[in-house]
Design a protein around this nucleic acid. Structure first.
Lengths: 284, 284
DNA sequence: TGATCTTACGTTTAGCGTAACAATA
DNA sequence: TATTGTTACGCTAAACGTAAGATCA
C-alpha cells in the first residue's frame, strides 16, 4: 500500500537529485529516506531506481512513477484543501460591501436568520466584489449600482444620500443645498474605511484635500473641535454627538445619492431563501 | 497528513453504514476503525461525523469528504496500476499471431534483437489481434491478410501454403493437386492451437469431421499409426518423422495459401526499428 | 577528505487487538 | 439482550536517528 509521506519523500528525491539533499530539505535523516525509497519500490513492485555503490538514480520506470505520484499528491492536497473549504461554506457567510452603511442593516439581519453561521464582512471596491461573487469566494456582495451578469441575482436594498456638515459661520453655512463643484477646493475631515465614497470624493472634488482619520475616536474629536467640514448621510447615526451644533446641507449631484444593490450567485439563492424573502430579488 | 489505509476505512464506513460492519469487512477490530476515523477527522481539521451516544454518521462535510476521498483512492489505484504496466512495456514484447507458423521465425528474431526483453506470444483470432494492437495491449500482431488502419503499420512477411498428407493407397493418393471441395466429406486428424486454420478448415469442408488432438505426442502417434489424412504446410518441419511414407498433395484453392502480415502501432515503430529493418514496413 | 548511500543497532513511537464500559433499540 | 461506538491497557511491530561501513570523486 502506498504511503503519502513516503511518496512526498520520493518526489523530493526526484526534485533534489540525491537522497541526502532531499533528507536535508525534509528535515529527516538519510537512512530514513533510504528506507522510504525501498518501501516505495516495494509498493510499486517494480524497480524504480538504478543503484550504484554510492549513487542512486531514477530508472525510466522511476521517472514515470514520479510523474504519476505528482498527480496523486496534487489530488491529495486538493482533497485536504476542498473539504475544509466546503465545511466553511456550510457554516459561514461572507459579505463584501462597497461601503459600511449597508452592512449596518444587512449583518444584523443575516445574524438573526442564521444564528449558527459565522458571518464575516469586509469593505471592497465594487469590481472586486462582483468578481468574488462570481468566483464564489464571497457569498453576498453589496454594490452602489445594479449589475447584469449571468447567474447573478441583484436587487436594490437601500438608498444613501451624502450631505455636508459645517459649523455655523462657515462660508457654506448659509446654503440650503450644495454641489460637488461648490465644495471643490475646500478641505474636509474624512473617515477611513468608507469604501467607494473615498474615491468618489477625490474624483468629484479634485482640488480638495482630505484629512483621513483611521482612528474613530480621533475622528470624532476632530469633528467636534475643529471647524473643518465633514460628511454625513441619511444612514449615519451620530451616536457620539459630534455633529451637535453643525449644519447639515444636502448635496444635490446625482453621484451623491446611491442605491445599494445586493448581489449573490443564483445557485446560492436557495441557501439564502429565508434571508432574501424580505427583498424582491430579481435575476437579470 | 492523510493516510491511504485510513481513508480506505473511511470510505468502507461510508459504504457499510456502521463502524462495526466496515471493520468486519476489512478484517480489523472496531476500536481500530474508531481510531482511524478520529485520525481522518484530525487530518481534515473539520468535523466529518455526527457522534451520538452509540451511533456515528457522516456530517454533510463528511459526505463531501467521502466523495473527494473516492477520487483520491481511485487516483492511487491508478498510479499503482500504471507504473508496473509501464515497466512491463519497457521490458517485454507481446506478439499475437493468427497461426503458429510465423512465430517460428518472428520470435527467434525478436529474441536476438532484444535479448534483455521478455517475449510473450499467443495465438488469437485476427479481429482480436487488430483490436489489441490498436489498444496497445499487444505490441506486434501477425494477420493472414493486410490491414489498412490509421496509425497501424503493416507489412507482408511470409507465405504459407496448405497441403494434405495421405497414406499410399488412400482414395486421394493418386491426385497431383486437390481442392477443398475434393476433400469435403473426408475426416482428418487435426492439431489444436493452429489459429485461424481451424475455422478455415471447418468452413471450407463443412461435411468433414476433424479429430482435434491437443497433445502433440498423441497427434504424432495417430498420424504415424492411422490412415486418416492430415495437413502440413511449406513452413512445417516434420521433426518427428511422422509424415514418412505419406504423400503430400498441394491444395489449390486461394484460401489454402495465405500471406502473413506483421502489424504494429505506428508510434512503436521507433522502438522496434532494429527488428523492423529487415522488413519493408509501409504505413497504410 | 568530503560526499554519498546502505546496513546495523537501540530506542521510541504508534498501531493493533482484547477487554471493559456506556448507551440504545 | 444484542448491537454499537468509545476508552483503557498492554503488547508488538514499525519507524526513527545515531553510528558505522563502503564507495567514489
Amino acid at each position: 500500500m502506498l504511503n503519502l509521506i513516503e511518496l512526498e519523500q520520493f518526489v523530493a528525491f526526484a526534485d533534489y537529485g540525491t537522497l541526502s539533499k532531499a533528507a536535508e530539505h525534509l528535515n529527516i535523516s538519510q537512512p530514513t529516506i533510504t528506507r522510504s525509497m525501498q518501501h516505495v519500490e516495494d509498493a510499486f513492485g517494480v524497480p524504480l531506481f538504478i543503484r550504484e555503490k554510492n549513487r542512486i538514480t531514477l530508472s525510466p520506470t522511476g521517472k514515470k512513477a514520479v510523474s504519476c505520484v505528482r498527480v496523486l499528491l496534487a489530488t491529495s492536497r486538493d482533497t485536504v484543501d476542498q473539504v475544509p473549504r466546503y465545511h466553511k461554506s456550510l457554516h459561514s457567510v461572507t459579505v463584501e460591501s462597497c461601503a459600511p452603511a449597508p452592512l449596518w442593516t444587512v449583518l444584523p439581519e443575516l445574524s438573526s436568520h442564521y444564528p449558527d453561521m459565522s458571518i464575516s464582512s469586509c469593505i471592497q471596491n465594487p469590481d472586486d466584489i462582483l468578481n468574488h461573487v462570481i468566483a464564489h469566494t464571497c457569498d453576498i456582495g453589496i454594490l452602489p449600482y445594479p449589475v447584469e451578469s449571468k447567474g447573478i441575482l441583484c436587487t436594490p436594498i437601500l438608498k444613501e444620500a451624502l450631505s455636508i456638515c459645517v459649523r455655523p459661520g462657515h462660508d457654506l453655512a448659509s446654503m440650503e443645498r450644495l454641489t460637488f463643484s461648490d465644495l471643490n477646493g475646500f478641505n474636509f475631515l474624512l473617515r477611513s474605511e468608507i469604501g467607494f465614497w473615498d474615491a468618489m470624493c477625490r474624483k468629484t472634488m479634485p482640488a480638495s484635500k482630505f484629512l483621513v482619520q483611521t482612528d474613530d475616536f480621533a475622528f470624532q474629536e476632530l469633528v467636534y473641535e475643529s471647524t473643518l467640514p465633514c460628511f454625513t448621510t441619511n444612514l449615519a447615526a451620530d451616536n457620539s454627538g459630534m455633529l451637535q451644533g453643525r449644519i447639515v446641507i444636502p448635496i444635490t449631484d446625482p453621484e451623491a445619492t446611491v442605491t445599494y444593490h445586493l448581489i449573490l450567485s443564483a445557485n446560492k439563492s436557495n441557501a439564502f431563501r429565508g434571508f432574501l424573502r424580505k427583498y424582491s430579488v430579481l435575476p437579470y
